[in-house]
Design a protein around this nucleic acid. Sequence first.
RNA 1: GCCGAAGUGGUGGAAUUGGUAGACACAAGGGACUUAAAAUCCCUUGCCUGUAAGGGCGUGAGGGUUCGAGCCCCUCCUUCGGCACCA
Length: 859
Amino acid sequence: MRISEELNFIDTFGTQGYDSRMSSYPFEQIELKWQKYWEDNESFRVTEDPKVPEDKRLYVLDMFPYPSGAGLHVGHPEGYTATDIYCRYKRMNGYNVLHPMGFDSFGLPAENYAIKTGTHPKVTTEANIENFRKQIKRLGFSYDWSREISTHTSEYYRWTQWIFLKLYEKNLAYESETPINWCPSCHTGLANEEVKDGKCERCSTTVTRKNIRQWILKITEYADRLLDDLEELDWSESIKAMQRNWIGKSHGASVRFPIENSDEVLEVFTTRSDTLFGATYMVIAPEHPFVHALTTRECSEAVHEYVSQAAQKSDLERTDLAKDKSGVFSGSYAINPLNGTKIPIWIADYVLASYGTGAIMAVPAHDQRDWEFAVKFDLPIIEVLKSDQGVKVSAFTGDGIHINSDFLNGLDKQEAIDTMNEYLKEKNIGEPTVSYKLRDWVFSRQRYWGEPIPLVHCDSCGIVPLREEDLPLTLPEVESYAPSGTGESPLSTIESWVETTCPACGGKAHRETNTMPQWAGSCWYFLRYLDPKNTEALAAKEAMKYWMPVDLYVGGAEHAVLHLLYARFWHKVLYDLGIVDTKEPFQRLVNQGMITSFAFQKKDKTLVSVEDAEETGVDTFAEKGTGEPLERVIAKMSKSLKNVINPDEIIDEFGADSMRMYEMFMGPLQVSKPWSTSGLSGVYRFLDRVWRLSQKGISEEKADEDSIKLLHKTIKKVGEDTDSLDFNTAISQMMIFTNELYKKETLPREVWEPFILLLSPYTPHLSEELWAMAGHAPSVSLQPWPQYIPELTVDDTLEIVVQVNGKVRARFDAAKGTDKELLLSRALEQERISELTEGKQIVKTIVIPDKIVNIVVKG
RNA sequence: GCCGAAGUGGUGGAAUUGGUAGACACAAGGGACUUAAAAUCCCUUGCCUGUAAGGGCGUGAGGGUUCGAGCCCCUCCUUCGGCACCA
């Protein structure tokens, strides 16, 4: 389409509606116009086009948000903008890109609100979704909205329940009595986040533990695969490390200790089987099943007292009090299986019931915790590894030569471990064992607002899963969302829902009343996007084959462990069932940094809100009223510090394009960085400059050589940096380009149009407008990415730096590719250099072509 | 304590991975335009020294490797994130 027709076209799009001489660009009009255009034309709808070759299919995923009542936070658009730019860039490079958005819409806040106000969580949630969607759309992201999902809808959770049935069929779900955080005053279970300093967030009553029947998923069965398959993933080392750490695989040995006057055998896990001769006592956790059996009559009172105290303590208290070891003697003795020595068995909460076997052999000479305990309770310490420091002041945990250890004497640590493990196996008193920190996943919540677990308890058949065709099992209406008071879910109070018939025998049965945790829906949502309307399967096999795995997943590091581990676990189960074809769901993961804010700090390190601080000079601040000097520091955004930035207000004032570009310009995507509104205005000024540039009118004249070269350098830099998600440096290159172009008299089409294309992933609204103004039909997002000519990205003449003894002393220009000899002789000719080298001996010269000459002199 | 990431001007941050430290932007100062202000445009801007040319110092601290270190190695300090009696 050429100029004559264009005017007509532009008019239909209303481009002439604004005053072109305005000093600031009409972002509001432009943004609304193009958002409407994209929506009306479904510009970003994507299909599984079989003509697109496999390596040109790209799945780019954002972590979907929980639609909170507070609305969008500036942190959300950061990751979303990054992926949006990347997607737009990739589309322009010929990729078929799937880029969906949805909502993780089951969650505690809506339920708590319901308890308070009686409003159905669905009503609150859907209103919040509405608001979120509106806010997200204001930023002009290129999502395929036709694939939007919400996890709380029955069409969605039908499949969450279906996957649960598969887990159940595979014996990966079991019931167990497990403790929850219990508030004795509210009569309700609490999530960890509702427990503050060991107290209930709402009523400040000390939280205790209460055992309750729960559903558990056997994630531990997948521990090794979750660990090993990390290798193949393109994730940051720190996130991989966190996952490895969480899984916590450690190699050791289990050793069986006979108990004196008993047939029972106490099994322990140790990574230091080589120190077995140094074991002077045993410790079992207060929750260990043998506690009762091992406690002698004389000790029972003390043990009973200790165990019940431990039970009342919250996890936090237990770890807090940990600095001072506590424990009690059971009265029983174990026998060291190597030499028959009698060793006392203690009960202490520094041993965790949930790790290893819940029992240890204590070797105080070579384990610091055991050492502290032994010193406190005056237990013997036997040194079995020779060291310079000895074991008088602390345990020796290093490597050394074994002593007092019979057949291990003279061996070092690793040799001794190997020898001992061999020996244990041979004598059948133990064997090499692997232990994990990872525990099975408590998969039930005593809540209303979650997916009902699709099982019934039948009087005659026991636990019976629902039939697949009976899914979804929907949430019933309840009168009150308040907790039942027994620790059970509010669902348990609805008799008409609970009472049902058994799918197997047709007899009387009652429904499971636990619901699933919020993690459930997010474990597989990326699969539903592939085929969101499917009623026959969670997604069609072909769609999964077409898109999976996710090529790029961007989100906050706060989900580094749980969400990512749970989703990987479910994915592996689905893989084993043949439902998905990839072992891992997320090939590449990038964690965006947090957007922080400035706050002010007094000398005593207390924080002062932004409102209470004033600037008293260049970067000096004082508290209003008192005049106390303050230091500017970086802090998390929080209501109390009054430093929360609301994206809606930013968009109102500066426009979505400025908001998007500023968030990318602040610094590298992966690191956290402080919000600065003056920094934002710098980006706004840049876009305003671009706009004013366009008002010059496009010239059909040839551009000068400098402009052409700069353009090609810019194409190269912006392309490469966008591809590697280094958006901040790509933007700075575009600024350099604009600054140069601004100095020119004219605006040549041959450099202006490619520049609009470079800009378009970053500021799509403005770029669509500029593209239309240049006389083209929409959409700029369908244009191919400009290509650079490599020869035009390098300068013909380069500045050569001359150093003497490593210090820069002179510079001169030389043609690119000038040979070494010439560079050296020209360097020596420099006035300053001859001054400095005169009368001195040149020891060595280093010439790096096109860069540097270094002359080393002596004397 | 352990694991991970990071320390660069007044501020946010660049630096082709060993070759000109401070790109780009903010803030600040000066100037132009204006009756004035805003907006815009131009200039200065790491620190010290010097009229200037120049010189010295400078990437958390100290050491090392190298012709040459923000980048590599060792020790230490600080900040942030995660885990926290894991046997």
